[in-house]
Design a protein around this nucleic acid. Structure first.
Lengths: 320, 320
DNA sequence: CTGGAAGCATTAGATAAACTTAACTTAAAA
DNA sequence: TTTTAAGTTAAGTTTATCTAATGCTTCCAG
C-alpha cells in the first residue's frame, strides 16, 4: 500500500529542484540513483509524477498533491528532530511530572517557576493524583517521573515495584494538630486518648482515613466515631480551620512550620514517634533520564534541601 | 541530519502496538528486523525512544513527540495516495485548465457544470489569460492543458512549440458586426471602407487592436482613427451594445448565432474571407494524460461539437 | 520452585535493495 | 557540426536489510 518512504524524500529533492542532477547533489548520490528511485516510486504509486521534457522535469498534478503532503512533513520532522536533539545539550521540552495532590499544589508551582527562570525552554505538565494512578502513568510512559508516597501504597500497587527506581526525597511528618487556644480550652492540654477522641475534628474526606490511621498508630486503637465538624480536601484549608479553633486535624508539620514554631499551632505528642510519610522520586528503572530530567531533579532536590523540610521537628528525616 | 525515513514507519508500528512482535506482524517481517531498525533509529537521532520493560516497550517523551509528527503524515499520505490512485479508475481530483478570457468565460462554466454532474469528484481551476501566459503555465506544469489561440502567437512564443501537442478544436469566425437597424440607417447597407470607417465602433480595449486587425485583413488598410463610442472588455457586452444600435463591433460569430441567423445582427462581408481564430487544445507532448484529463477533453469536444460552433456561417471550420 | 512460554536482543549469514560506473540518447548551445 | 548538459539505462558492486538461530529475562503454570 504505502510506498517506500525514503523515495519520498528523493521525490522532494527532485520536486524542489526540478532537476535530477540538482537533486543528486543535494542527496549526495549520483543522478543515476535519483533517476532510478523516481522511476520506482512512480511504479509503486502507479502514477507518473513528472513529465520528462528535455533537461527539465515538469511535475504533474499528482506530484503537486504528493508534494503538498510530503513537504510539511519533512519540515516538521526536521524541526522536531532539532528540538529533540537540542534537548541533549540544554534542558528543553515538556517535562511530565506527577505528585501527590497536596504536596504538588504546595511545592511545584514555586519550583517550576524558579526552574523556568534558569531554563525557559522547559515546559511542565503536572499531574496530581494518588500513588496508584501516578505509578501506572510512570509505567505507561505518560509521566517522566513522579513524587509518590510509596510507603502508603507499597503493598497494593499492581505490577511489581522492581521496574521502578525509587529514591526517597523527603520524609513528611504527619501530625495531629490544633490551635494553642483549642488545646487549652477544649483539651485542657491533655493528650490522652479519651480526651482527644471526645474533641472535634477537621477531615479531608468523610471517611477520615488519615485520622483513623493516626489513632491506630499512636494508640493502637480505632477512633470509632470522631466528631467531624468540617470536611475539606485541602491541606491549606485544614490548617486555616485549625487556626480558627475549629478543632484538630491531620497535617504535615512542615507545611505549618512557622505556626508550630511560634506556638500558634500545637502538635499532639504521644509516647510514640510521629507518622512519617516518605515521599520518593519514582521513575522507570531502565529509563535513561534525559538531560532535562536530570537537571530538573537536581533542582528539585536542592529546593527541598533548602526548604529544610521536616528536619526542624524531629530527627528521622534523612531517610536511607 | 534526517534519519532514514522508512525507519519512522517501523517506529510508527512499534509505537502503535507497543510491541516488537506485533509490529513485526504488521510489517510482515521478523521481530529481529524490527528490533534492529528501532535500534538504528535511536542511534541516528541519538535519543532513546522506548524504555525496555519486560515484554513491554514504554515510549519516552521524545517518542511521543516523534509520533505526533509521523502519525498525521502517514495518515495523510495514505489518504492522498488513495485519492491519487482512485483517479485511475474514476475521474477525480482537480483539473487545471487554461483558456482565452472571452472564450473561457462564455463556455467553461456550462461545460464544467455538465461535467461535474457526471463526475462530481472532479473540481476545476480555470485560468483565463493570454496565449503566452497559458503556454508557459502548461510548460511549467501549472496547467494540465489549455485552450489557446495558437495562430495569434505561434511566432512569438518563447521556447519552442515542439514540446506541446496542439490539437485544433474549433475555428472561431471573427467578424465585424452591427445591428440591422444600424446597418441600414448609419451605413445605408454600404460596406465600403470609407463608409465603414466613418461609423461608430464598440471596442474591447482603448487601443482597438481587434478592430485594426480586422481592417488590415479585409482592406489592407489601417483604420487610423476609428470613432470608439464604447469600450468594454466583454464579448457579451459588445454584442449587447451592437443590438442597441450603438455601432459596429468585432465579435465571434457563433456567440451571436441566433441574432445573426434571424437578421437582428448583420455581419460586415467584404471580398475577403472572414478572419478565423483557431482555438487549439494544448498540452505537453510527453505528458501521459490522466483518466480525468482524457474524460474531460472528450466531454469538452463533444460539447463543442454539439454547439456546432462556426459551421453555420462558413465552410472552413473543421480544421485539419 | 522448576520448566515452559513469551517477548526482546544479538549474531552471523543470506538476501535484497540501493548505489556507482559507464555507455547511450537527446536537445540545446557554441 | 561539434560540444555540452541532463536524463536514462544496463551491469556490476556495495551496502543495508532481513532471516534464522540462540540467548536472556520475566511471567505463569504445574
Amino acid at each position: 500500500m504505502l510506498p517506500d518512504i525514503n523515495r519520498l524524500k528523493i521525490f522532494y529533492d527532485i520536486y524542489t529542484t526540478r532537476s535530477v542532477v540538482a537533486a543528486a547533489r543535494q542527496a549526495n548520490i549520483t543522478p543515476s540513483a535519483i533517476s532510478q528511485q523516481l522511476k520506482k516510486l512512480e511504479v509503486e504509486i502507479k502514477t507518473p509524477l513528472f513529465t520528462r521534457l528535455h533537461k527539465k522535469l515538469v511535475p504533474t498534478g499528482e506530484a503537486d498533491r504528493l508534494f503538498a503532503i510530503v513537504n510539511p512533513f519533512l519540515h516538521d520532522l526536521e524541526a522536531g528532530l532539532r528540538t529533540i536533539n537540542q534537548a541533549r545539550t540544554k534542558p528543553s521540552g515538556q517535562l511530565r511530572v506527577g505528585a501527590p495532590t497536596e504536596f504538588g499544589k504546595a511545592f511545584f508551582p514555586g519550583i517550576f517557576s524558579s526552574f523556568r527562570k534558569k531554563y525557559p525552554e522547559v515546559t511542565f505538565s503536572l499531574t496530581l493524583g494518588d500513588p496508584s494512578v501516578l505509578l501506572s502513568m510512570v509505567r505507561r510512559g505518560t509521566l517522566d517521573f513522579a513524587l509518590v508516597d510509596v510507603f502508603l501504597t507499597q503493598s497494593r500497587v499492581h505490577g511489581d515495584l522492581g521496574i521502578y527506581s525509587i529514591e526517597p526525597i523527603i520524609d513528611e511528618e504527619v501530625v495531629l494538630a490544633c490551635s494553642k487556644n483549642y488545646c487549652e480550652s477544649a483539651l485542657g492540654n491533655d493528650f490522652s486518648f479519651k480526651r482527644l477522641i471526645a474533641g472535634e475534628f477537621i477531615s479531608y474526606q468523610p471517611d477520615a482515613m488519615a485520622l483513623r490511621s493516626w489513632f491506630r498508630h499512636h494508640f493502637r486503637k480505632v477512633a470509632l466515631h470522631p466528631k467531624i465538624v468540617m470536611t475539606v480536601d485541602s491541606l491549606q484549608a485544614v490548617i486555616a480551620c485549625i487556626k480558627h479553633d475549629l478543632g484538630m486535624g491531620i497535617i504535615v508539620s512542615h507545611m505549618a512550620y512557622d505556626d508550630i514554631r511560634k506556638g500558634r499551632i500545637v502538635t499532639v505528642a504521644t509516647s510514640r514517634k510521629e507518622i512519617i510519610n516518605r515521599i520518593s522520586l519514582v521513575q522507570l528503572q531502565d529509563k535513561v533520564p534525559s538531560l532535562t530530567d536530570k537537571t530538573f531533579q537536581a533542582h528539585f532536590k536542592a529546593a527541598m534541601q533548602k526548604a529544610g523540610v521536616l528536619k526542624k521537628f524531629s530527627g528521622h528525616g534523612d531517610g536511607f
